[in-house]
Every structure is written in structure tokens, then in C-alpha cells.
Design a protein around this nucleic acid. Structure first.
Length: 509
RNA sequence: GCGGGUGUAACUCAAUGGUAGAGUACCUGCCUUCCAAGCAGGCUACGUGGGUUCGAUUCCCAUCACCCGCUCCA
């Protein structure tokens, strides 16, 4: 009998109780949007990152790794578009996905003579862009003239209102600069996405720098270095795992949206004519990775973006989504980004970042497929998926059913009782295994209690030294999910554990 | 960002205008031959800062954190 985790509270308190995840700087009251990984959590997350690195980098012939600095030349963020509206209030258009500076947007309220069914004249609140109302009017006049054909000449000059002074109610009437639809503009918001800092002791505008909001740009910025030195040939990918920072307005849902988080990103470069194929490949391959590590349930899905949802430079994007207790959210995005990013860096850096194909004697800017995953989100999804409540011998138990590959502790070694030389035998096995696996030794309290403790930590196997061990040298192995036990020769215990961790199934009862 | 809620021990919760109690967990010892056993002992808390009051964990205000809904989400 298993049950899906129905709310996050249980997981949050388990994470705290067992040392997976703590609120950051908790003794000072915490800090919104930041979390710390405890002894078990750090092992879990590291195992997930290691699995990602092994499967996507080390075991492949077409991938190399990279580890870039978190603070980079601020021009990188101008090229990427992240620095565009820093500190200025911005307005988003829901229809066109464009973003405007609110202080450069003016609304022109026209009144046309044609009346509607209520007998009221037609109003049109047109938004225009410019550093002054006059400049903004230029773009708007044409659209007003078009409307005049339909509704008659406006009854006078339009009322000019800076967008920043529009009330929430009136905002619904405004027609965005690039649409004919009303009410698609959001309220003006300061967009301090990036954390700002200063390089050097002096805090002046000239030495402002940013903590990276994504690891991807470091890869693009190093594209030429890797091509020149890495002996790589298209198609190939560059992978990076590392911290990124976003000053989220509204961190929520445990670690899901944090201000400091860790990404696992790949930029896979290929010929433009092969990009669609590689996109399809990564879309499938990345989804399967989660399935193979245990996200087998219906909670996982792959969702293709609608055309109107795509960034303007992307021809296709898919999200790998997981249904958490708080809702369905993105674990990873796989985006076909075309040659947009490299071209941006070519433009801003003035350097040639094109690639010369020796075989075809062609020079071109490669296209890129970007599978971008969140390590913390993956960790959280694996925790939610693993969380199980069942019954053993009529007693409720909480167990984290992690895939052995990501389980923080691979096995626990116990003496059945603390006498007759059992602790010594058990500790010898523990010492031997510790050289290869993260294992745990425990001799305190009743055996059942020790098993349950390991269940809550997600330890897949427990190894117990008992009186029969003293007689014939065998130990018992106990499986976390079924509580089934079987005997294995003590000398072969490490190898037996290795086999089990490699996926060998447990013996039949 | 808006609205609502919560904040007492490691966890889950009580009580109280006169500084707090339980269960679980944890630690020590005894006992114990396989799934949270028992006995004895022990450690640990009123998020933070103000205010009212003779006295505040309790009332008020602020702040911080978390949760729920809306909003938002490169």
C-alpha cells in the first residue's frame, strides 16, 4: 500500500528531522528563498548531480565539461538580454511576450464618435513607446488613424497618460504597443532579476557586476575556447553544473523556487540542418533519464510549448514537468535556441564565434539545443516520489524509496545485539565497505528501530551480523522496500552489495 | 506583489497575563537473538524587536520565516 505525498508539510518536516534540508541560517530566523542541505541531503543531491554528469558527460564521446566563474564580465549579460531593464520598472505583454520599460511607455486615450450599444462613444487607450510623449505618439498615430476609419475621426487630441500613472483598473483598457488586444500588459514591476555586486573595494557604478542568473552564458562565452582547444568536432555538447542566482520576487514551495539554486545545463552544438533531429533526441533522452532514476509515476510528463509560448528566437521548447503536491512544475526545459545566443555574443563581443566544418569546408554559426535542468528541483522531485507510507507488521512506517543510485546511504551495517563479538564483526564489514560505498554503522537500540531509521533515510539495504554469522560467517541482507531478508557470506558482502546497487534483483523469498 | 493563516523542544502538538506539559525522537545505563518492545535516568522550547502592564509565551504593533489562495515565473 503506497500513497502519494499529499502535502509538502510532511516532507518538509521529514527533511528537517532527518537532515536532508534546513532553512538557511535558521538560527537567525532564516532568509527567504535560501535553503541548506544537511548530511543526508548533500549526499542525495550530489548523487543526482554525479548521475547526471556520468550519463551526460563521462559516458558520452560527444560531450565535454566546463566550470565557469559565477561572476563574469557584465557585458555577457547585456548580450544575453538579462541586463536590459535592470532596476527600471518593466512591463510585460502577455500576448506578445515582449517586455517594455514602463517609464518609456505613454498611453494615448482617444475618443471616437461612433457609439456602442449603450450609446457610449468608443474609447481606445493606445500605448506607445518613446523617451518623450511626442516620440511615443509617432508609433501610435498610425494605429489611431486606422481606428478612425472604422469609428470616425477622434473627437479631439488624445489624453496623454504615462503608463506608470495608470491605475490597475484602467490598465485593463490599455492596448499594448504590439497588439490589438486590450489588457495584455502587466503592472509595472522593478525587474531586479540579477543579484548585483561590486568587483573591487570601491562601490561605484563602474565596477558593478552580477551573480550569474544561469550557467548557460558561461558556456557560450567559452565556445571559442573549447573549440580551439578541446579537439571537439560538431556535433558536440558542453556541460556545466553550478550555482545560479535569481532575485525572485516570490520564492515559494520549499526549495522549488529558490534565489540560489544549482543548474545542470548542456549546450549541444550542431549543424543547422541537424538541429531538429538533435532536439528530438535530447527531448526524449532527458525525459528517459528521470524515468530511469525512479520518476516512473504518472507525476512526470513531457510538455511541448505552444508556438505562442516560445521565446522569439526558439523554434521549439519542451518542458519536463513533475506534479508536486503544490502543483505541476518544470524540472527541466529543452530548448531549440537556433543560433541566437552565439550570434548575440558575436554581436556584443565583436569576436568571430563561427565554426569551420573541415569535412564540408563550410563556415557557419552552429545551432544549439539546450537541456537545462535544476538540480534542486530534481532533488525535490526525487524526494517527493520516494516518499511512501506503508505498513510493516501492522505498524505504520515512513520510507523513502530512492533508486539505489541516488540513495544517500547505500547500506547500513548492524550487529543484531551488542555482545558476543557481533559488534566487532559488523564493524569489520562496515570498515571494508566504507572504502567503496557510503555506508552507516549502528549498534544502538532495538534492531527494528534501526531498520526504520534507515527506511526514513532511504537506505536501500541493511546488513546484519547475528549469531549465525558467528557460526557460518554469513550475514543477513534486508531489502528496504519489501523488508525481505536473505543470507550472504560475510566475505562476499561488499560484492553482493555492489551487484544490488548495479541493479541485480533481490533473491526470491 | 496582494489577501488570509501559522509561529512553544529535533518532530507533532497542549496549556497559561504570574516564565510551560505531553507523545515521539535523541543521549546514558540495564535488558534484549530480526522490524519503532521494556525499565531507570537525562538533554532540549515560547521566531525577533518594540509597546501596554507591577509582571507578557499569552494582549497590541512591527518585523522575519513558513503555509494556502491570487499574481508572477529568463
Amino acid at each position: 500500500m503506497t500513497r502519494m505525498l499529499e502535502d509538502m508539510d510532511k516532507l518538509v518536516s521529514l527533511c528537517k528531522r532527518r537532515g536532508f534540508i534546513f532553512p538557511s541560517s535558521e538560527v537567525y530566523g532564516g532568509i527567504n528563498g535560501f535553503w541548506d542541505y544537511g548530511p543526508l541531503g548533500v549526499e542525495l543531491k550530489r548523487n543526482i548531480k554525479d548521475a547526471w554528469w556520468a550519463d551526460n558527460v563521462r559516458l558520452r564521446d560527444d560531450m565535454v565539461g566546463l566550470d565557469c566563474s559565477i561572476i563574469m564580465n557584465p557585458r555577457v549579460w547585456e548580450a544575453s538580454g538579462h541586463v536590459g531593464g535592470f532596476s527600471d520598472p518593466m512591463v510585460d505583454c502577455r500576448a506578445t511576450k515582449e517586455r517594455y520599460r514602463a517609464d518609456q511607455m505613454y498611453v494615448f486615450a482617444y475618443v471616437f464618435p461612433k457609439v456602442n450599444h449603450k450609446g457610449e462613444p468608443t474609447e481606445a487607450w493606445l500605448a506607445g513607446l518613446g523617451s518623450s510623449p511626442e516620440e511615443a505618439l509617432e508609433g501610435v498615430e498610425k494605429r489611431a488613424a486606422k481606428l478612425a476609419k472604422k469609428f470616425g475621426e477622434p473627437t479631439g487630441a488624445p489624453t496623454i497618460i504615462p503608463y506608470l500613472q495608470i491605475s490597475a483598473e484602467d490598465r485593463e483598457k490599455v492596448i499594448g504597443p504590439a497588439t490589438d488586444e486590450r489588457g495584455t500588459l502587466t503592472e509595472p514591476r522593478a525587474f531586479n532579476l540579477m543579484f548585483k555586486t561590486f568587483v573591487g573595494a570601491l562601490e561605484s557604478e563602474s565596477n558593478v557586476a552580477y551573480l550569474r542568473p544561469e550557467t548557460a552564458q558561461g558556456i557560450f562565452a567559452n565556445f571559442k575556447n573549447v573549440v580551439d582547444t578541446g579537439r571537439v568536432k560538431l556535433p558536440f555538447g558542453i556541460a556545466q553544473v553550478g550555482k545560479s542566482f535569481r532575485n525572485e520576487i516570490n520564492p515559494r514551495n520549499f526549495t522549488f523556487r529558490s534565489r540560489e539554486f544549482e543548474q545542470m545545463e548542456i549546450e549541444f552544438f550542431c549543424r543547422p540542418d541537424e538541429a531538429a533531429e538533435w532536439y528530438a533526441y535530447w527531448r526524449k533522452s532527458r525525459f528517459q533519464w528521470y524515468v530511469d532514476l525512479g520518476l516512473k509515476s504518472e507525476q512526470l510528463r513531457l510538455r511541448d510549448h505552444d508556438p505562442e509560448e516560445l521565446a522569439f528566437y526558439s523554434t521549439a521548447t519542451a518542458d519536463i514537468e513533475y506534479t508536486f503536491p503544490f502543483g505541476t512544475s518544470e524540472l527541466e526545459g529543452i530548448a531549440h535556441r537556433g543560433d541566437y545566443d552565439l550570434n548575440q555574443h558575436i554581436k556584443f563581443s565583436g569576436k568571430d564565434l563561427s565554426y569551420f566544418d573541415e569535412e564540408k569546408k563550410e563556415r557557419f554559426v552552429p545551432h544549439v539545443i539546450e537541456p537545462s535542468a535544476g538540480a534542486d528541483r530534481a532533488t525535490l522531485a526525487f524526494l517527493c516520489e520516494a516518499y511512501t507510507e506503508d505498513e510493516v507488521g501492522g505498524e505504520a512506517r515512513t520510507v523513502l524509496k530512492f533508486h539505489p543510485r541516488i540513495a544517500p546511504v547505500k547500506a547500513a551495517v548492524f550487529p543484531l545485539v551488542k555482545r558476543d563479538g557481533m559488534p566487532e564483526k559488523a564493524e569489520a564489514i562496515y570498515r571494508e565497505m566504507k572504502r567503496r560505498f557510503n555506508v552507516f554503522y549502528d549498534e544502538k537500540g532495538a534492531i527494528g528501530r534501526r531498520y526504520r531509521r534507515q527506511d526514513e533515510a532511504g537506505t536501500p539495504f541493511c546488513i546484519t551480523v547475528d549469531s549465525q554469522t558467528l557460526a557460518d560467517g554469513t550475514v543477513t541482507f534486508r531489502d528496504r522496500d519489501t523488508c525481505r531478508q536473505w543470507r550472504v557470506p560475510g566475505e562476499g558482502a561488499a560484492r553482493a552489495l555492489d551487484d544490488l546497487l548495479q541493479g541485480e534483483s533481490i533473491p526470491e523469498a
